[in-house]
Design a protein around this nucleic acid. Structure first.
Length: 317
DNA sequence: AATACCTGCAACCGCTGCCCT
DNA sequence: TAGGGCAGCGGTTGCAGGTAT
Protein backbone atom coordinates (compact mmCIF):
# COMPACT_ATOMS: atom_id res chain seq x y z
CA UNK A 1 0.00 0.00 0.00
CA UNK A 2 2.48 2.56 1.14
CA UNK A 3 5.41 3.07 -1.15
CA UNK A 4 8.39 4.46 0.61
CA UNK A 5 10.04 5.35 -2.64
CA UNK A 6 7.26 7.71 -3.33
CA UNK A 7 5.61 5.97 -6.20
CA UNK A 8 2.00 6.17 -5.36
CA UNK A 9 0.10 3.05 -6.16
CA UNK A 10 -3.31 3.05 -7.67
CA UNK A 11 -5.21 1.20 -5.00
CA UNK A 12 -6.54 4.26 -3.38
CA UNK A 13 -10.00 5.47 -3.85
CA UNK A 14 -8.71 8.71 -2.57
CA UNK A 15 -10.44 11.99 -2.87
CA UNK A 16 -10.68 13.80 -6.13
CA UNK A 17 -8.35 16.48 -4.92
CA UNK A 18 -5.67 14.05 -4.02
CA UNK A 19 -5.98 12.02 -7.18
CA UNK A 20 -5.64 15.16 -9.24
CA UNK A 21 -2.59 16.15 -7.33
CA UNK A 22 -1.04 12.77 -7.83
CA UNK A 23 -1.66 12.87 -11.55
CA UNK A 24 0.01 16.21 -11.87
CA UNK A 25 3.03 15.59 -9.67
CA UNK A 26 5.01 12.51 -8.84
CA UNK A 27 4.23 12.71 -5.19
CA UNK A 28 6.33 11.12 -2.52
CA UNK A 29 4.84 9.07 0.28
CA UNK A 30 6.10 7.28 3.30
CA UNK A 31 8.68 8.40 5.84
CA UNK A 32 10.06 11.89 5.56
CA UNK A 33 13.72 12.45 4.91
CA UNK A 34 15.83 14.91 6.85
CA UNK A 35 16.13 16.99 3.73
CA UNK A 36 12.38 17.23 3.36
CA UNK A 37 12.05 18.14 7.02
CA UNK A 38 14.51 20.99 6.61
CA UNK A 39 12.72 22.23 3.54
CA UNK A 40 9.43 22.32 5.37
CA UNK A 41 10.85 23.92 8.49
CA UNK A 42 12.69 26.46 6.42
CA UNK A 43 9.67 27.41 4.40
CA UNK A 44 7.37 27.73 7.40
CA UNK A 45 9.96 29.76 9.27
CA UNK A 46 9.95 32.24 6.42
CA UNK A 47 6.38 32.20 5.23
CA UNK A 48 4.40 30.76 8.10
CA UNK A 49 2.04 27.83 8.03
CA UNK A 50 -1.30 27.36 6.37
CA UNK A 51 -2.37 26.99 2.75
CA UNK A 52 -0.78 23.59 2.83
CA UNK A 53 -1.22 22.61 -0.77
CA UNK A 54 0.43 25.71 -2.13
CA UNK A 55 2.96 25.54 0.66
CA UNK A 56 3.97 22.08 -0.47
CA UNK A 57 4.42 23.27 -4.02
CA UNK A 58 6.24 26.46 -3.18
CA UNK A 59 8.58 24.73 -0.77
CA UNK A 60 9.56 22.33 -3.50
CA UNK A 61 8.23 19.35 -1.63
CA UNK A 62 6.79 16.50 -3.61
CA UNK A 63 4.24 15.90 -0.94
CA UNK A 64 0.58 16.56 -0.57
CA UNK A 65 -0.49 19.50 1.50
CA UNK A 66 -2.02 17.05 3.88
CA UNK A 67 1.23 15.25 4.36
CA UNK A 68 3.08 18.49 5.01
CA UNK A 69 0.52 19.61 7.51
CA UNK A 70 0.64 16.31 9.33
CA UNK A 71 4.41 16.25 9.42
CA UNK A 72 4.53 19.77 10.76
CA UNK A 73 1.82 19.40 13.36
CA UNK A 74 2.78 15.98 14.63
CA UNK A 75 6.52 16.13 14.44
CA UNK A 76 8.31 19.27 13.36
CA UNK A 77 6.41 21.93 15.27
CA UNK A 78 8.81 23.42 17.83
CA UNK A 79 6.39 23.11 20.72
CA UNK A 80 5.54 19.50 20.16
CA UNK A 81 6.25 17.34 23.18
CA UNK A 82 8.06 14.11 22.55
CA UNK A 83 8.61 11.19 24.84
CA UNK A 84 6.66 9.24 27.37
CA UNK A 85 3.21 10.20 28.43
CA UNK A 86 3.44 11.40 32.02
CA UNK A 87 1.17 10.28 34.81
CA UNK A 88 -0.58 13.60 34.76
CA UNK A 89 -1.14 13.31 31.06
CA UNK A 90 -2.47 9.79 31.42
CA UNK A 91 -4.92 10.97 34.01
CA UNK A 92 -5.97 13.82 31.81
CA UNK A 93 -6.48 11.56 28.84
CA UNK A 94 -8.57 9.09 30.78
CA UNK A 95 -10.76 11.79 32.20
CA UNK A 96 -11.19 13.67 28.97
CA UNK A 97 -11.89 10.54 27.02
CA UNK A 98 -14.53 9.48 29.49
CA UNK A 99 -16.12 12.82 28.85
CA UNK A 100 -15.71 13.27 25.15
CA UNK A 101 -14.94 9.88 23.69
CA UNK A 102 -12.69 9.68 20.67
CA UNK A 103 -12.48 13.40 20.18
CA UNK A 104 -8.73 13.25 19.97
CA UNK A 105 -8.09 16.72 18.78
CA UNK A 106 -10.30 18.13 21.46
CA UNK A 107 -8.49 16.12 24.08
CA UNK A 108 -5.16 17.19 22.64
CA UNK A 109 -6.09 20.82 23.13
CA UNK A 110 -5.84 20.24 26.85
CA UNK A 111 -2.48 18.55 26.66
CA UNK A 112 -0.11 21.21 25.44
CA UNK A 113 2.42 19.90 23.02
CA UNK A 114 0.72 16.56 22.58
CA UNK A 115 -0.86 15.79 19.26
CA UNK A 116 -4.15 14.11 18.63
CA UNK A 117 -2.27 11.38 16.86
CA UNK A 118 -0.10 10.69 19.87
CA UNK A 119 -3.04 10.58 22.22
CA UNK A 120 -4.95 8.35 19.87
CA UNK A 121 -1.99 6.00 19.68
CA UNK A 122 -1.67 5.99 23.44
CA UNK A 123 -5.32 5.09 23.80
CA UNK A 124 -5.20 2.35 21.27
CA UNK A 125 -1.97 0.77 22.41
CA UNK A 126 -2.24 1.11 26.18
CA UNK A 127 -5.82 1.59 27.22
CA UNK A 128 -7.46 -0.71 24.77
CA UNK A 129 -4.94 -3.37 25.63
CA UNK A 130 -6.18 -3.37 29.20
CA UNK A 131 -9.76 -3.58 28.08
CA UNK A 132 -8.79 -6.57 26.06
CA UNK A 133 -7.20 -8.16 29.09
CA UNK A 134 -10.40 -7.61 30.99
CA UNK A 135 -12.26 -9.16 28.12
CA UNK A 136 -14.58 -6.25 27.94
CA UNK A 137 -15.27 -3.54 25.48
CA UNK A 138 -13.36 -0.35 25.98
CA UNK A 139 -16.65 1.53 25.72
CA UNK A 140 -18.49 -0.66 28.17
CA UNK A 141 -19.72 0.69 31.45
CA UNK A 142 -17.69 -1.93 33.23
CA UNK A 143 -14.45 -0.76 31.76
CA UNK A 144 -15.27 2.88 32.18
CA UNK A 145 -16.08 2.34 35.83
CA UNK A 146 -12.89 0.41 36.32
CA UNK A 147 -10.97 3.29 34.85
CA UNK A 148 -12.82 5.83 36.84
CA UNK A 149 -12.77 4.20 40.23
CA UNK A 150 -9.59 2.20 40.07
CA UNK A 151 -7.18 3.34 37.50
CA UNK A 152 -7.59 7.07 37.83
CA UNK A 153 -7.42 7.22 41.62
CA UNK A 154 -4.29 5.16 41.50
CA UNK A 155 -2.79 7.49 38.98
CA UNK A 156 -3.53 10.33 41.32
CA UNK A 157 -1.84 8.51 44.15
CA UNK A 158 1.20 7.99 42.03
CA UNK A 159 1.32 11.59 41.06
CA UNK A 160 1.13 12.54 44.68
CA UNK A 161 3.77 10.03 45.64
CA UNK A 162 6.08 11.21 42.91
CA UNK A 163 5.51 14.81 43.89
CA UNK A 164 6.16 14.05 47.53
CA UNK A 165 9.33 12.20 46.67
CA UNK A 166 10.49 15.00 44.49
CA UNK A 167 9.70 17.73 46.93
CA UNK A 168 11.42 15.93 49.78
CA UNK A 169 14.53 15.27 47.78
CA UNK A 170 14.66 18.75 46.38
CA UNK A 171 13.26 20.62 49.30
CA UNK A 172 16.19 22.97 49.44
CA UNK A 173 16.56 23.42 45.76
CA UNK A 174 14.47 25.42 43.39
CA UNK A 175 14.58 22.95 40.58
CA UNK A 176 12.06 23.29 37.78
CA UNK A 177 10.68 19.87 38.54
CA UNK A 178 9.93 20.76 42.10
CA UNK A 179 8.35 23.94 41.00
CA UNK A 180 6.25 22.12 38.50
CA UNK A 181 4.92 19.61 40.92
CA UNK A 182 4.16 22.27 43.36
CA UNK A 183 1.72 23.64 40.89
CA UNK A 184 0.19 20.30 40.38
CA UNK A 185 -0.42 19.43 43.96
CA UNK A 186 -0.73 22.64 45.83
CA UNK A 187 -4.23 22.52 47.08
CA UNK A 188 -4.20 26.18 47.87
CA UNK A 189 -4.45 26.88 44.21
CA UNK A 190 -7.70 25.05 43.84
CA UNK A 191 -9.58 27.96 45.14
CA UNK A 192 -7.85 30.32 42.84
CA UNK A 193 -9.16 28.63 39.80
CA UNK A 194 -5.67 28.20 38.50
CA UNK A 195 -5.13 24.60 39.30
CA UNK A 196 -6.31 22.53 36.47
CA UNK A 197 -6.51 19.31 38.37
CA UNK A 198 -10.07 18.79 39.48
CA UNK A 199 -11.16 20.34 42.65
CA UNK A 200 -10.26 18.17 45.57
CA UNK A 201 -8.60 15.50 43.54
CA UNK A 202 -5.09 16.42 44.41
CA UNK A 203 -4.99 18.04 47.73
CA UNK A 204 -5.72 17.50 51.33
CA UNK A 205 -9.40 17.06 50.88
CA UNK A 206 -9.07 14.42 48.27
CA UNK A 207 -10.27 11.20 49.76
CA UNK A 208 -7.71 8.82 48.40
CA UNK A 209 -7.49 7.19 51.77
CA UNK A 210 -11.13 6.30 51.60
CA UNK A 211 -10.58 4.39 48.47
CA UNK A 212 -7.30 2.81 49.34
CA UNK A 213 -6.80 2.96 53.07
CA UNK A 214 -3.75 0.78 52.99
CA UNK A 215 -1.87 2.90 50.58
CA UNK A 216 1.39 4.54 51.44
CA UNK A 217 4.09 5.59 49.07
CA UNK A 218 6.35 3.05 50.72
CA UNK A 219 4.19 -0.02 50.40
CA UNK A 220 2.53 0.85 47.19
CA UNK A 221 3.47 -1.33 44.32
CA UNK A 222 3.01 1.72 42.26
CA UNK A 223 5.95 3.49 43.77
CA UNK A 224 8.40 5.12 41.48
CA UNK A 225 10.81 2.26 41.87
CA UNK A 226 8.68 0.14 39.61
CA UNK A 227 10.92 -0.69 36.75
CA UNK A 228 8.28 -0.99 34.15
CA UNK A 229 6.73 2.25 35.07
CA UNK A 230 9.95 4.07 35.53
CA UNK A 231 10.95 3.25 32.04
CA UNK A 232 7.65 3.61 30.32
CA UNK A 233 6.17 6.56 32.04
CA UNK A 234 8.14 9.17 33.81
CA UNK A 235 6.96 9.30 37.41
CA UNK A 236 7.99 12.88 37.78
CA UNK A 237 6.51 15.37 35.52
CA UNK A 238 8.81 17.38 33.40
CA UNK A 239 6.07 19.73 32.57
CA UNK A 240 6.60 23.37 32.30
CA UNK A 241 5.28 25.58 34.97
CA UNK A 242 2.31 26.53 32.92
CA UNK A 243 1.34 23.03 32.20
CA UNK A 244 -2.10 22.30 33.60
CA UNK A 245 -2.07 25.83 34.65
CA UNK A 246 -4.55 27.33 32.31
CA UNK A 247 -6.71 29.84 34.10
CA UNK A 248 -9.96 27.95 34.30
CA UNK A 249 -12.10 30.92 35.02
CA UNK A 250 -10.87 32.65 31.94
CA UNK A 251 -11.22 29.79 29.59
CA UNK A 252 -13.83 30.70 27.02
CA UNK A 253 -14.50 27.09 26.23
CA UNK A 254 -17.69 26.04 27.96
CA UNK A 255 -16.55 22.44 27.77
CA UNK A 256 -13.47 23.18 29.73
CA UNK A 257 -12.66 20.14 31.73
CA UNK A 258 -12.49 21.29 35.24
CA UNK A 259 -14.73 24.22 35.18
CA UNK A 260 -16.36 24.64 38.52
CA UNK A 261 -19.80 23.27 39.04
CA UNK A 262 -19.80 20.72 36.32
CA UNK A 263 -20.26 17.94 38.75
CA UNK A 264 -18.10 15.58 36.83
CA UNK A 265 -14.84 14.13 37.88
CA UNK A 266 -14.50 15.64 41.30
CA UNK A 267 -17.92 14.67 42.49
CA UNK A 268 -18.66 11.37 40.93
CA UNK A 269 -15.28 9.84 40.92
CA UNK A 270 -13.98 10.88 44.25
CA UNK A 271 -17.17 10.21 46.07
CA UNK A 272 -18.40 7.00 44.60
CA UNK A 273 -20.84 6.47 47.38
CA UNK A 274 -23.22 4.75 45.08
CA UNK A 275 -20.59 2.28 44.20
CA UNK A 276 -19.94 1.25 47.72
CA UNK A 277 -23.63 0.79 48.15
CA UNK A 278 -23.67 -1.49 45.20
CA UNK A 279 -21.27 -3.75 46.96
CA UNK A 280 -18.07 -3.00 45.18
CA UNK A 281 -15.09 -4.15 47.12
CA UNK A 282 -12.42 -1.66 46.32
CA UNK A 283 -9.99 -3.28 48.71
CA UNK A 284 -10.08 -6.45 46.72
CA UNK A 285 -10.12 -4.74 43.40
CA UNK A 286 -7.17 -2.67 44.40
CA UNK A 287 -4.97 -5.63 43.75
CA UNK A 288 -5.88 -5.59 40.13
CA UNK A 289 -5.56 -1.88 39.96
CA UNK A 290 -2.08 -1.99 41.36
CA UNK A 291 -0.98 -4.54 38.89
CA UNK A 292 -2.54 -2.63 36.13
CA UNK A 293 -0.88 0.58 37.03
CA UNK A 294 2.40 -0.99 37.85
CA UNK A 295 2.55 -2.54 34.46
CA UNK A 296 0.93 0.24 32.61
CA UNK A 297 2.73 0.45 29.36
CA UNK A 298 4.33 -2.86 29.94
CA UNK A 299 4.12 -5.57 27.39
CA UNK A 300 2.87 -8.15 29.82
CA UNK A 301 -0.21 -10.00 28.75
CA UNK A 302 -0.81 -11.50 32.15
CA UNK A 303 -1.86 -8.59 34.23
CA UNK A 304 -5.15 -10.21 35.01
CA UNK A 305 -5.55 -13.76 36.04
CA UNK A 306 -8.75 -15.51 35.05
CA UNK A 307 -9.78 -15.39 38.69
CA UNK A 308 -9.16 -11.68 38.82
CA UNK A 309 -11.19 -11.08 35.74
CA UNK A 310 -14.01 -13.23 36.96
CA UNK A 311 -14.00 -11.47 40.29
CA UNK A 312 -13.98 -8.04 38.75
CA UNK A 313 -16.80 -8.94 36.43
CA UNK A 314 -18.86 -10.27 39.27
CA UNK A 315 -18.34 -7.09 41.21
CA UNK A 316 -19.30 -4.97 38.29
CA UNK A 317 -22.51 -6.83 37.56
C1' DA B 1 22.23 -16.88 16.18
C1' DA B 2 18.20 -16.99 13.61
C1' DT B 3 13.50 -16.56 13.19
C1' DA B 4 8.83 -15.43 14.53
C1' DC B 5 5.98 -12.58 16.85
C1' DC B 6 4.56 -8.32 19.11
C1' DT B 7 4.30 -3.39 20.02
C1' DG B 8 4.44 1.44 19.27
C1' DC B 9 4.27 5.01 16.25
C1' DA B 10 4.51 7.69 11.94
C1' DA B 11 2.00 8.33 8.04
C1' DC B 12 -1.86 7.67 5.02
C1' DC B 13 -6.87 7.51 3.79
C1' DG B 14 -11.54 8.88 3.48
C1' DC B 15 -14.84 11.79 5.16
C1' DT B 16 -16.85 16.13 6.85
C1' DG B 17 -17.48 20.85 7.39
C1' DC B 18 -16.16 25.50 6.48
C1' DC B 19 -15.12 29.23 3.47
C1' DC B 20 -14.90 31.61 -0.74
C1' DT B 21 -16.44 32.64 -5.29
C1' DT C 1 -27.46 28.77 -3.68
C1' DA C 2 -24.22 25.59 -5.47
C1' DG C 3 -19.80 23.96 -6.23
C1' DG C 4 -14.91 23.65 -5.53
C1' DG C 5 -10.91 23.88 -2.60
C1' DC C 6 -8.93 23.46 1.71
C1' DA C 7 -8.19 22.26 6.58
C1' DG C 8 -9.02 19.21 10.04
C1' DC C 9 -10.65 14.96 12.13
C1' DG C 10 -10.91 10.01 13.30
C1' DG C 11 -9.80 5.47 11.64
C1' DT C 12 -6.50 2.44 9.63
C1' DT C 13 -2.20 0.64 7.94
C1' DG C 14 2.65 -0.56 7.47
C1' DC C 15 7.10 -0.65 9.24
C1' DA C 16 11.02 -0.54 12.49
C1' DG C 17 12.63 -2.03 16.63
C1' DG C 18 12.18 -4.91 20.55
C1' DT C 19 11.20 -9.37 22.65
C1' DA C 20 10.37 -14.23 22.87
C1' DT C 21 11.28 -18.80 21.26
Amino acid sequence: MMDVEGNSNSNSSSSTTQSDEEMMVDLRRGPWTVEEDFKLIDYIATHGEGRWNSLARCAGLKRTGKSCRLRWLNYLRPDVRRGNITLEEQLMILELHSRWGNRWSKIAQHLPGRTDNEIKNYWRTRVQKHAKQLKCDVNSKQFKDTMRYLWMPRLIERIQAAAAATSSSTATSASPAASTNHHLINNNEVGTGNLVMPHGVIGNDFGVSHVTPSYTPENSSTAASSDSFATQVSPVSDLTTDYYHIPVNHNPNPDYLFQAGQGGYSESMISPAGYFNQGLDFQAMEHNSNQWLMESGDTSDNLWSPEDIWFLQQQMM
